[in-house]
Design a binder for these strands. Structure first.
Length: 270
DNA sequence: CGCCAGGCTTCTA
DNA sequence: TAGAAGCATGGC
């Protein structure tokens, strides 16, 4: 018999899009419905049934101490969508993509994942990360943890050959070593200004503006970070030639996710 | 076979 | 200091 925690009447939340819009790479469909994934050393089977969110075999305390924060449930997305819709162009976009929430992911996992993402496609990114976890993570109930920076810092580039991550392997090692030896302190960076934090991350080989901004946005809580990849450049050129409306810049990263997903799932060809 | 994928580093003028 | 080439791998 399952002992589930159920969040009722949740608004502005689409679980499937949130988990599969390209911000996280380790969630997959559960054979019995919903999705399963591992964050830190916690396994979760989660499912959405209309406006209810079912956390399988999770007690209320476990929800409150961890998953509530992971799914960013303290933030009022309805308010953000309302503000966004003051600009006509964002009405259809938030209509389609307003169910996306920003996941508060683990800093190191986020950094490492987006290093892997460069010049790569999502299915292969997921494959490399899965091999990274099964090869170097720790076995727990339900799967493997994401390997720590400390663990990877002790390896050499050749040891990562099984990942088939190509030229990115040397970047992973460099990132792991800098994070493990404190040269880059991901926890401390959270308190930096956006520009200082970005600059610090870019000291890592293979981390440029895009990877840095994804790490800041998805892993370090900087919701004003605005990652610009090829999709976003195209979308911004077409929809917001003069940039994002000023009143949305403090939550630019959330709007970025809406636009990014909209650009990828609708006909936004130039 | 060629092109491209949530880019970045290195080389060149 | 801007712009192009090179980078590993895999899917189409």
């Amino acid at each position: 018999m399952e002992n589930n925690f159920i969040l009722k009447s949740v608004k502005d939340f689409d679980l499937a899009i949130t988990l599969d819009c390209g911000q996280a790479f380790r969630w997959k469909e559960h054979p019995k419905g919903g999705f399963e994934g591992i964050v830190g050393d916690r396994y979760l089977h989660i499912e959405q049934k209309s406006n209810d969110i079912i956390f399988h075999n999770i007690c209320e305390k476990e929800y409150k101490t961890f998953w509530h924060n992971y799914f960013d449930f303290d933030r009022d997305y309805g308010e953000i969508i309302k503000k966004a819709c003051l600009d006509e162009r964002l009405v259809p976009i938030t209509k389609d993509c307003g169910g996306i929430r920003l996941l508060r992911q683990q800093p190191w996992e986020t950094l490492c994942s987006f290093i892997i993402s460069q010049n790569n496609n999502i299915p292969r990114i997921k494959g490399i990360i899965e091999r990274l976890c099964t090869g170097f993570g720790e076995k727990i109930e339900g799967g493997y943890t994401f390997p720590s920076a400390e663990k990877l810092a002790g390896l050499e580039v050749e040891n990562l050959a099984e990942l088939r991550s190509g030229f990115r392997a040397k970047y992973i090692i460099d990132a792991a070593r800098k994070c493990a030896n404190g040269e880059v302190d991901l926890e401390k960076i959270k308190e930096f200004s956006l520009d200082d934090a970005r600059e610090m991350l870019m000291r890592i080989k293979g981390v440029g503006p895009k990877v840095a901004d994804c790490t800041l946005l998805f892993g370090l809580g900087f919701i004003e970070a605005f990652p610009m990849d090829v999709w976003m450049k195209r979308a911004m050129e077409k929809l917001f030639k003069d940039g994002l409306p000023e009143n949305l810049k403090d939550c630019g990263g959330i709007i970025q996710q809406y636009i990014f997903h909209y650009a990828r799932t609708t006909n936004l060809q130039v």
